[in-house]
Every structure is written in C-alpha cells, then in structure tokens.
Amino acid sequence: MYCTKEEVRGMIKDDALNVLIGNEYIDDPDERELKIAPIIEGAIADAAGEIDGYLAKRYPVPLSVVPKAINKFAKDIAIYNLFSRIGIDESEKDKNYLNRYNAAIRFFENVAKGMIDIGVSGVGNTQKASAAFSAHSSPRRFSRDSMRGM
C-alpha cells in the first residue's frame, strides 16, 4: 500500500464519517471508527490497484520504497474513492476531491508515458543508468609475481 489507514483517516473530518458509513447515524465515536476502518482500507486498496496500473508500465510494482509524491497522490485517490461512494457534487465543496483526483491521475499518466521519473529503480531507470556511466582502465602492469625479486 502507498498510504496508511491512519493517514487517510486523518484527512477526513469527523462530521463526514456518518455520511461515508452509510444510512445509519452512529453517535459513539469508537463504533464509528470501527465501521469506517474497513471502508477506508477498501478505498486504499482500490487506490493502490489504480496506481499500480499506471506504474507497471515503467516500474516493478508494488513499489518497495514509496516516494512522497506517490504517498500524497495515493491519499488523494483514496479520499476520492471514499467520497465517490456517496456521490460527488461538482458544484460544491466536493469538487476539491475531484480536482485532487484528476491531478493525481494526470501525474500517473505522465509517469506511465515516461515524462515524469519518480526516482525509484525500474525498467526505464536501469537502462538510463547503465548507459550513462561506464569505467575503463588500462591492463595491469605490475603484480606480485612480476615484482618478485626486484
């Protein structure tokens, strides 16, 4: 996964939890957290799958080291996934979720096209690195055997 449940939960205001959970109002905060946890985990898993779909063109997925940009966009996609479950009103404050999602998708499309390098080793990076650096040296003139007796 490219982000944690705690990171995504931290981006959701408490007053939005009941709306995201569904048709029932839950007054108890602990019960609300128990109900929202699997919903957030599902949104994160969906976001990771979507991200892997773009990254797989250039990098082995899932990434073992997660760059900060990937973490940020993973949270944005997960939040969008959560709010899109209940419908996103483009004329209201929900439009922010859609805008952030669209920015994330544009980023990943550019990564897939090779226009953006995320700084982890992968197919594209390995080929560039090996072509950019090589070392050559002269043959060895002296060795222990050739210096013996001098």
Rank of each mutant, 00 (worst) to 15 (best):
S121M: 10
I77W: 08
V120T: 07
F108S: 04
A104G: 13
N71F: 00
K95T: 05
N102S: 12
I70P: 04
G114C: 11
S91T: 14
V66R: 02
N99Q: 05
V123K: 13
A56Q: 11
G114F: 10
I88T: 06
Y101K: 13
N102G: 01
F83C: 09
S121P: 01
S91G: 07
D89Q: 11
N110H: 12
I79P: 01
L63V: 01
P60E: 10
V61W: 00
R58M: 03
N102M: 12
K72N: 14
K95E: 09
G119S: 02
D94R: 00
K72C: 05
I105R: 09
D94G: 08
V61G: 02
D76Y: 11
I118M: 06
A56H: 05
N110V: 00
A103I: 12
G122R: 06
E90Y: 01
L82R: 06
G114P: 13
V120W: 03
P62E: 03
N110Q: 14
Q127M: 12
N71A: 14
E92F: 08
F107W: 05
N99C: 00
N81R: 07
K68Q: 14
I86H: 05
A69I: 15
Y54C: 06
R100Q: 13
N99E: 10
R58E: 04
D89H: 06
I79L: 14
I77D: 09
S64K: 13
Y59Q: 03
G122K: 05
I70F: 00
A69H: 08
V61L: 02
V123E: 11
G114T: 11
G122A: 05
E90T: 10
K75R: 15
N96F: 04
N102T: 13
I86G: 10
G124V: 14
A74Q: 03
I86D: 08
L98V: 11
I77C: 10
I116Q: 06
S130V: 14
S91I: 04
V111F: 01
N125D: 14
D117M: 09
L63T: 07
G114H: 11
L55C: 08
S91P: 00
V66W: 03
E90S: 09
V111N: 03
Y97T: 06
K57L: 03
A69E: 15
V111P: 01
N81Y: 02
K93Y: 10
A74T: 01
R100K: 15
I79A: 12
K72F: 10
Q127T: 13
P62N: 02
A112W: 06
I86W: 05
P67L: 08
I105C: 06
P67W: 08
I79K: 12
N96E: 13
V61Y: 04
P67R: 09
P67F: 09
